[in-house]
Design a protein around this nucleic acid. Structure first.
Lengths: 229, 229
DNA sequence: GGAAAAATACTCCGTTTGGGTGATTTATTA
DNA sequence: TAATAAATCACCCAAACGGAGTATTTTTCC
């Protein structure tokens, strides 16, 4: 855990399209001596522009990023920024609590995920935690995150190795996923497992939902990476 | 988010083998009126016994569970408790930060995961959050959790040596194959690499020929198996 | 300089996929 | 027993894909 020069101010940027909210946040963060607001932006495009134009000593350490933005979304913005500026930590800041956005945010490299009703000093601690290698996450969001890696409880497997199956795919689904990984088409799979092509398709759609992907290629990559097969 | 009868005291139990630590924690939590300590235990066995013998009005809402315990571990204890008392929330409380224990804790049904150096009022907020459907997690732990669901970011390996690639894919083809593995569509890839979608398609067809496959899924599997990326 | 390889762009066409919706049957378990 | 979850089958539609062919421009290397 490499804490980044304690004692130095944390350079913060705010990306938020809602004027009043942005100003209020700016105002509140102003009370904290340990923070230095380097810029605010009201859109993803502006934010990216600002970062590119920032002199090194004004480069933000952490960006508080609204997800809902006019034009490109906060998620897309994060993705683009992380491509070039890997070292900037980005905390998603949103009113939304849905799984998809959370998952996408994580995929594109967001470090934290806070709901907008988070108390201001919680926000400030989060900014610090992020600099120290942590990932501040609103508890209600954390529970969803846990849901993504935990499998709903079932049979007793307390002893020996827990036999970890990421995403809780049913046996039928795993069987089909294996065929998908083998590069077979739905029709081919159907013949292989003696099911109608429609059933195969339904299974695959359910697999996608559970794995949070939307194509065979992505499913294959994830499955191999997580050793599902 | 079903908050459980706000206004009612939260019944808490502490499971911790270290005497001084347990007493100190007990003492500290005593200052909070909104909490009611129903019991403490110094081992998993004792804890389970206590829960089974608890009268309904003394049943804990939340248990702060140390992971390192003499006899059965906090994880095993959690597992056994959750089997019978699904409604009890359990927060793992530990000095350990390793992935395995975190993962196991989640698998057996722990709701939160705090490090022992967490400030006391953070602990108290966590107890409340848990009752409101949240999952309080120490930020440094949360980052590990995120690592479990995120895709590894590509590092820029500035090519110095020729780097042998199975199948002799041209650099352009490898670049495109990487995108295919990321689950992108031809159009998305085209935008990413600034080429027309038709060109991308041509490349992909050539990749298929060289790899002797005829679908994305198959290409992804082969590429990952042979470490092309 | 000239041949070969790679990269680029485009068309036509039929097939496959992914997403949405809905329905029935069989376990399982609360 | 009632509620839930898993597995099965079905249809529609728009978008994406894969196969075949053609053609120009760059690069590379002998």
């Amino acid at each position: 855990m490499e804490s980044k020069e304690l004692g130095k101010k944390i350079r913060v940027a705010i990306v938020e399209d809602h004027d009043i909210f942005r100003k209020r946040l700016t105002e509140l963060l102003g009370f904290y001596d340990e923070l230095e607001l380097v810029f605010t932006a009201d859109s993803g495009e502006t934010c990216i522009k600002q970062v590119f134009e920032s002199e090194p000593e004004k480069m933000p350490d952490v960006i508080l990023m609204d997800i809902e933005l006019p034009g490109i979304s906060g998620i897309e913005t994060t993705f683009q920024l992380k491509e070039k500026f890997e070292e900037i930590d980005i905390i998603m800041f949103t009113v939304f609590e849905d799984d998809e956005r959370l998952f996408e945010s994580i995929q594109v490299g967001a470090t934290g995920y806070l709901l907008k009703d988070t108390a201001i000093d919680e926000v400030v601690s989060s900014l610090k935690e992020v600099r120290e290698g942590g990932s501040p996450i609103t508890p209600s969001i954390a529970r969803k995150l846990i849901g993504m890696v935990s499998k709903p409880k079932k049979e007793n497997s307390s002893k020996s190795e827990p036999e970890v199956v990421p995403f809780d795919l049913s046996p039928a689904e795993i069987r089909i996923l294996e065929q998908v990984i083998d590069g077979k088409s739905n029709k081919e799979i159907a013949e292989e497992v003696f099911l109608s092509p429609w059933t195969v398709k339904t299974h695959i759609k359910n697999i996608y939902k559970k794995m949070h992907v939307n194509s065979r290629a992505a499913a294959v990559r994830l499955a191999l990476k997580r050793d599902i097969v």
